[in-house]
Structures are given as C-alpha cells and as structure tokens.
C-alpha cells in the first residue's frame, strides 16, 4: 500500500514537472520578450539589458527553468539592493505586470472559481444521476424520452450559448435572477448563493447532460445483469436492488467522469467566467493573455495541471472505497 502511494505520488510530481517543462519551453522560446514589454518607452538597450537581468531572463532558458524550480523550494529574489523584490517560497513566479506574487494572484481568485465549480458540481452530479437512474428504470416512458432529448441538447449546446440564453431570458426579460454580481461567501452567504444561481444552473445543465446519458446507459446495462436477477430472485426488495446493488456499479464511471471534469475545471471556468463576468481564475488567465503576462500564464497552466493530477488521484482513491475489487491489499 505504502509502495503504491509512493509510486502514485512520484507519478504526480513527474507529470507536473513535464507540464512545467513543456509550458516553460513553449512560452520562453516563442519570440515575445517579457523584458521588452516591461522595459517601458523609450526602451534603450541598456534599460532592456537591466530589465532582463532583473527578471532573470539573461540566463539560458534551461537554466531559467531550474531557477524557477528552485524558487518553488527556496523562494527567489529579483534584483539587488533597495529595488529588490522578494518572492518567498513556494515561489511560482512573480508577475512584473501586476507587481505581485503569482501564487497570491491565484489564491486571490480561487474562491470565486471554487464557489462556481462546487455549487454547479453538486447540482449536476446529483440531478444528472437521479434523472439518469429514473429514466433507465422507466425506459421508454415520456420521462425517459424528455430526459434523453434534454441531455442531447445539453451535450450539443456550448456552455456559453446556454449561459447567454439564460442571461437573456431569465436575467433581462423575466428579471428573476441577478446577472453578474459576485459577493464573497464570508461577506454574505445568501447573496453569494443568489448571485451564483444562474451560473450554477447553466453549468449544471451543460455538464449534467453527460451524466444523464452515462448513468442511463450504465443503469440499463447493469439492470440486465445476472446478479440483479439473482438479487430479485432471492427476494431482495426492489429499492435495495436499485439503491444498493445497481447504483454502486453505476457510480464508478460517474466518479471517473466527475474527476475528469473537475480536473479540467480551470479551462471551463475561463469560458463561464467570461459569460457571467465573474472575477475568478479564468478572468486572471484571460487578463494575463491580453497583457502577455508570461509568469502569470505559466503559474495558471501549472496550477491547472496540479488540479488535473489531484483530481485523478482522488478518483483512484475513491475507486477503492466504492469497489471492493479495486481495493488494494
């Protein structure tokens, strides 16, 4: 068990290193000089050289990569003397554009993205699985047909399109939900939730559709298997057959899908946050894109990779809890 966990952790670190390396190589080899952008106008060659040295861009790129990695453990100091900027460990880079530690930037925006994702995920997994199971049990009923038609629409419509329609109809025409104001949870939990209702529902509709399709087909398959017939034959009540015997099998792929979707959360958040003008991580990434803020871009990409890796690990662990066959001895 310990050996397995150690191998697993090692694998995670390795994946993150590869992500960091690829990102570093691509971003620092393409011809767009961060020092040039920061050097101001008029940009004399002396100033440019100074800016490069200050940011650490005068070193060869592979050396920069190791300096970056070192900074995670020991922190970094840019420049010397009175103008020096210190970025304490763990230092994931320093945004010279915004004059802030990248980690601080990410930490500042994370609550918004997290609020968005958690609420929506609870809705979409809960509703998606419930609808999928019910549709499978009442196969070919009007409910089943409606669920399928709805899930086909949900799968095919891009999140931003559903979001815009929601804003247009529910927000502007009917005026039932607020559009585009975020209140931090600590400030006022009710207004926090109320402000996020529309984004949650939109995300849940778009993502829940996959869960409906997946749960329904998985449930249909499971319910026709021998162990279900055996359970029924020995007189187990239908509630228990569905709730205990069948659902457990259905949940495995659902957990996998949830893990994958949570891992790609940051990517998805970029789009949702743009539609609902929420000040989250996605917004940070887009601002960094438009201002060519390379350290922030690198930080966001690494953080996104971190989320994927952690989500995958959690999925692996929950397999053991859900499925005795996958339990490690």
């Amino acid at each position: 068990m310990t050996k397995h966990v150690a191998a697993r952790l090692g694998g995670m670190v390795l994946v993150l290193l590869i992500v960091a390396f690829c990102t570093y190589v691509v971003f620092y080899l393409v011809p767009s000089d961060p020092a040039l952008l920061a050097c101001g106008k008029p940009c004399t060659p002396e100033n440019l050289a100074l800016a490069r040295e200050f940011m650490g861009f005068d070193e060869p790129w592979w050396q920069q990569f190791f300096t970056f990695l070192g900074g995670i453990f020991t922190g970094r100091t840019f420049g010397t003397g009175a103008t020096a900027i210190h970025c304490s460990a763990p230092c994931f880079g320093y945004s010279f554009r915004q004059n802030t530690d990248v980690l601080e930037l990410i930490a500042g925006r994370l609550p918004v993205t997290f609020s968005l994702a958690i609420g929506a995920a609870v809705l979409w997994v809960g509703v998606g699985v419930a609808v999928g199971v019910y549709a499978a049990l009442r196969k070919d009923s009007w409910f089943d047909r409606a669920a399928l038609a709805g899930s086909v629409i949900g799968v095919s419509a891009p999140v931003y399109l559903v979001g815009l329609l929601g804003i247009l109809v529910l927000g502007f025409q009917l005026n039932v939900v607020p559009v585009g104001n975020y209140t931090p949870f600590a400030e006022d939990p009710v207004r926090w939730a109320w402000g996020l209702v529309l984004p949650w529902c939109v995300l849940a509709f778009a993502h829940g559709a996959h869960y409906v399709k997946l749960t329904r087909s998985q449930m249909l398959e499971t319910m026709s298997e021998d162990f279900i017939r055996t359970a029924r034959a020995k007189g187990v009540p239908e509630r228990t057959v569905v709730g205990k015997h069948a659902l457990r099998n259905v949940l495995l792929p659902v957990v996998t899908l949830t893990g994958i979707e949570f891992g790609s959360l940051l990517g998805g958040a970029v789009i949702t946050e743009r539609v609902f003008s929420l000040p989250g991580l996605g917004g940070l990434l887009i601002e960094a894109v438009h201002s060519r803020d390379l350290p922030t871009l690198l930080g966001c990409t690494l953080f996104a990779g971190f989320l994927v890796v952690v989500a995958n690990a959690v999925v692996d662990l929950s397999y053991g809890l859900l499925d005795p066959r996958a339990r490690l001895t």
Binding site: G263, S264, L266, G267, L285, I286, H290, A304, G305, V308
Partner: peptide, 13 residues
C-alpha cells in the same frame, strides 16, 4: 493529465 485548454489559451496569446 495535461491542462490542454489552459495551455491552448496561453499558446494563443
């Protein structure tokens, strides 16, 4: 495990 959407967005920039 690669955050491809984030990577593509950053690459586009």
């Amino acid at each position: 495990g690669f955050p491809y959407l984030v990577f593509m967005i950053a690459l586009g920039a």
